[in-house]
Design a protein around this nucleic acid. Structure first.
Length: 857
RNA sequence: GCCCGGGUGGCGGAAUGGUAGACGCUGAGGACUUAAAAUCCUUUGUCCGUGAGGACGUGCGGGUUCAAGUCCCGCCUCGGGCACCA
């Protein structure tokens, strides 16, 4: 700083150094093949109108500590930041004000940038990206077109979650208890035309990829459960008296002899064939009833099972037993074959159903301890199963499947809970889907043309959609038309019927294609269209917010590359994040979608560095309000980072958030806690700066205790940062300062070592003191201190003495003391001797330098 | 119901099977000051005891061990995720 203030003027110091770092490009990352890289990534924020909340600095500070630590350890560090800026709030603001969402987004981004900069992170701001920038949209659309080209994007009319309040459809992952994930609005089922991405094609790859990445166990588990792979078999049951078969999916082929009825979902197409005339009316009533129920009601476990007999029977392929076919909404049409074989003795749901409708229960599995008789759902030994009786479940399962396969009555099969990813939204503020809809004839004409340009992203199999009896074909925009920008409009309101606001912008919507010239012309510019022009209409859906966040970690590597999504050289050097820090709430959304796109880009050769984007992931915990509940405006317990910084400074805020507790834990904010770390920083300051504002007269030689403590501190802080145990690292630095003060100070050399240890946590104050102690280069470039091997040899250890397992005191012992020496010392001390007097010693346990346990009768 | 995590002073939290409660906060007492702020010192798990000292103590009940907050078995409870997925 310019003037040599005696006081710790944190605001001036922080402001000064932030400007200095910025102006001098201290954190600019450049490819340097002579040093190893380290890429630290934060989950980039959605720049909301309310600004940064106190949870943001938690994750960002953690990543910043690691970034600065790695830099000091010789790594070439990349630590970027950007904005996930598409999203509903900006659009709702636009609807309310008529102002273009880009304007509101810019205001919010500026505010976020100011707030994040005020925390002094070692971020390379020259790499800042924004998912709403045209240059960024271009590549998001390009990836979509690659997916399209490779047959992974298609259009389907399917039941989707429609949110009337948001006037948009939502992905499965975005719906929680029939409420929208954002805003908590009710959602309903509706049939609509949608873009869908075939993420299910990647189910197995997404599972396998989890095996060798360093992620929190719970997050891996969540993804595994979400993908929901189950191995089993499809078994064909002939319908009695008909040629038709009914296939069911089961993971328990070993219970096939225990099947006493079949159940089909009310939506199952076979119903038209199996419902007998006299059952027609009651079945129809039941189906209507089921239709009226919301999914929530249907899946409510508390409610009773309902169902109705179809009137038909099926034949069990393994023993030709005739069994009734029932209809019930506890069977889901969306999973497996929409039909199940019911084994009421060994499945709780089937059991419940059988009990309610008085159907047969036949036991075919016995448990090891044969206690469970009524309902036993685990594996066991088969009984009542003819030649399979006596076999363990796992063996019988395979044998039965094999035999069914040989008889052509079934086959092994795998089912997933994962559904394809619903990828379109009926909103304005998102990336337009770069597709034109044309007629079949036009599509054929383009397909057969010699010009490659229009066929750049053409898939092997056309994506088509039927609208009002007319077949429409999806034509991908050539890359020269990317980015497809959002057209200007004054009306951002989506319509109630699920059409995007883009569908009302006529002069954008309608275009002509000149096949010979490979040009797309706005319909506005064509008065009397010549015959050779092909009429086309743009797709009006936009992409979901996840699209931009799926690949942003790649764009940071070469944010200005205009020829590639990521510059191959940059990818080769920087690779992917070595550490990714962010909230656990994205466990199955962003983190699954992102892995899917990454795998895909790897498969098509766009990426070459590796199959998984995030090899090491860490979730920071949530910071609760002072009352221990979640921070919210309505509770009035929100802590504003701006206020904290103005009262205590950014260094105190950073230090406090790291000192609160383990990074991963959920923990409450406590304002007097931040006073504590602020006091610590003031104490540090006073050790370096005298009351006249000049540098302290440091000692010529450190006390033994101080130099020992310094070595301990180097060791502890280093190990703790590596393990991301920031709270205990800070505690150790406090111990050092307290102890050093009791020993009346330290040397300048020691003082500088300490600054380097503290700098990743509290960079501004350390940079200031570093400069004041005569250094001219930023502390960011200073090397991490190394500890000098083993601590100085100690001659006298204190060991604690247990008598019969109880701690009774401690005694000093020499390094080479024998058990008998120690016992002799113990017997010299009355306080210990009294426990042994009059008793005989049966045994001694001595753990060197730690403890001796003396056992008496 | 199933799958993950947790449960330690007044509070946030420390503890490679080896002196439980580091560090910080809070509370109490004191120093400095005309006073306050700031700063510094002492003290702060519970109970018994004037004290020295003693007993108890890491959600509950068992167990393993010379020794258990830590390992094993069975519960209770809180948080998160999934939820009729056959």
């Amino acid at each position: 700083m310019k003037e040599n203030s005696a006081e710790y003027k944190f605001l001036e110091i922080e402001n000064f150094w932030q400007n200095h770092w910025d102006a001098n490009g201290i954190f600019t990352a450049k490819i340097d093949i002579s040093s190893k890289k380290f890429y630290v990534l934060d989950m980039f924020p959605y720049p909301s109108g309310t600004g940064l909340h106190i949870g943001h600095p938690e994750g960002y500070t953690a990543s910043d500590i690691v970034a600065r630590f790695k830099k000091a350890n010789g790594f070439n560090v990349l630590h970027p930041m950007g904005w996930d800026a598409f999203g509903l709030p900006a659009e709702q603001h636009a609807i309310a004000t008529g102002q273009h969402p880009a304007l509101n987004t810019k205001t919010n981004v500026d505010n976020f940038r100011r707030q994040i900069k005020a925390l002094g992170f070692a971020i390379d701001w020259s790499r800042e990206i924004n998912t709403t920038d045209d240059d960024y949209i271009k590549w998001t659309q390009w990836i979509f077109l690659q997916l399209f080209k490779h047959g992974l994007a298609y259009v389907a009319e399917k039941p989707v979650w429609w949110c009337p309040a948001l006037k948009s459809v939502l992905a499965n992952e975005e719906v929680i208890d029939e409420k929208s994930e954002g805003g908590d609005h009710p959602v309903e089922r509706k049939n609509m035309r949608q873009w869908v991405l075939r993420i299910t094609d990647y189910a197995d790859k997404l599972l396998e990829g989890l095996e060798d990445i360093d992620w929190p166990n719970s997050t891996k588990r969540q993804q595994i459960a979400w993908i929901g792979k189950s191995k089993g078999a499809e078994i064909d049951f002939k319908i009695d008296g008909q040629e038709d078969k009914l296939s069911v999916f089961t993971t328990r082929a070993d219970t096939l002899f225990g099947v006493t009825f079949l159940v089909v979902a009310p939506e199952h197409p076979i119903l038209s064939k199996i419902v007998t005339a006299q059952n027609q009316k009651v079945v129809q009533d039941y189906i209507n009833q089921a239709k009226r129920k919301s999914d929530l009601e249907r899946t409510d476990l508390a409610k009773d099972k309902t169902g109705i007999f179809s009137g038909s029977y099926a034949i069990n392929p393994i023993n030709n037993r005739k069994i009734p076919i029932w209809i019930s909404d506890y069977v889901l049409i969306t999973y497996g074959t929409g039909a199940i074989m019911a084994v009421p003795a060994h499945d709780s749901r089937d059991h419940e159903f059988a009990k309610k409708f008085a159907l047969d229960v036949l036991q075919v599995i016995s448990s090891e301890d044969d206690n469970a008789t009524v309902l036993f759902c685990s594996d066991g030994k088969l009984l009542n199963s003819e030649k399979y009786s006596g076999l363990p479940s796992a063996v019988a399962r395979q044998k039965i499947i094999d035999d069914l396969v040989a008889d052509n009555k079934g086959r092994g099969n795998i089912n997933y809970k994962l559904r394809d990813w619903l990828f379109s939204r009926q909103r304005y503020w998102g990336e337009p889907v770069p597709i034109l809809w044309i007629s079949k004839e036009a599509y054929e004409k383009i397909s057969s043309t010699d010009s490659a340009e229009l066929k750049e992203f053409l898939p092997k199999k056309p994506v088509t959609f039927e609208k009002n009896g007319e077949g429409l074909f999806a034509l991908p925009l050539p890359s020269k038309y990317l980015p497809l920008k959002l057209p200007a409009t004054s009306s951002y309101l989506p319509s109630d019927d699920g059409e995007s606001p883009l569908s009302r912008i006529k002069d954008w919507l309608d275009v002509y294609i000149d096949v010979e010239k490979c040009e797309i012309i706005s319909a506005n510019d064509v008065k009397d269209p010549p015959k050779h022009l092909i009429k086309a209409r743009r797709e009006t859906n936009t992409m979901p917010q996840w699209a931009g966040s799926c690949w942003y970690y790649l764009r940071y590597l070469s944010p200005n590359c205009s020829t590639n999504l990521v510059d191959p050289q940059a990818e080769k050097y920087w690779g992917y994040p070595d550490l990714y820090i962010g909230g656990a709430e994205h466990a199955v959304l962003h983190l699954l979608y992102s892995r899917f796109w990454h795998r895909f880009l790897y498969d098509i050769g766009t990426l070459t560095h590796g199959k998984e984007p995030f090899t090491k992931l860490f979730h920071q915990g949530i910071i609760l309000g002072e009352d221990g509940t979640k921070m919210s405006k309505s509770r009035g317990n929100v802590i504003n980072p701006d206020e904290i910084i103005s009262r205590y400074g950014a260094d105190s805020l950073r230090l406090y958030e790291m000192f609160l507790g383990p990074l991963a834990a959920m923990k409450p904010w406590n304002t007097s806690g931040i006073e504590g770390v602020h006091r610590f920083l003031k104490k540090v300051w006073r050790e370096y700066i005298q009351s006249d504002g000049r540098l302290t007269q440091f000692k010529a030689v450190d006390n033994q205790a101080v130099s020992n403590s310094l070595q301990d501190t180097i060791q502890k802080v280093t190990a703790d940062i590596e393990a991301m145990h920031f709270n205990t690292a800070i505690a150790q630095m406090m111990i050092f300062i307290n102890g050093m003060r009791q020993n009346n100070g330290m040397t300048l050399e020691t003082a500088k070592v300490f600054l380097r240890l503290l700098a990743p946590f509290a960079p501004h104050i350390c940079e200031e003191l570093w400069a004041r102690s005569g250094e001219t280069s930023s502390i960011y470039f200073a090397k991490w201190p190394t500890h000098k091997g083993l601590p100085i040899k100690i001659d006298n250890y204190k060991i604690s003495i247990q008598i019969n397992g109880k701690i009774r005191g401690d005694i000093p012992v020499a390094d080479n003391a024998t058990e008998d020496d120690i016992l002799a010392s113990v017997l010299k001390l009355d306080g210990l001797k009294k426990y042994i007097d009059g008793k005989s010693i049966l045994k001694k346990v001595y753990v060197k330098h730690k403890i001796m346990n003396i056992l008496t009768n």
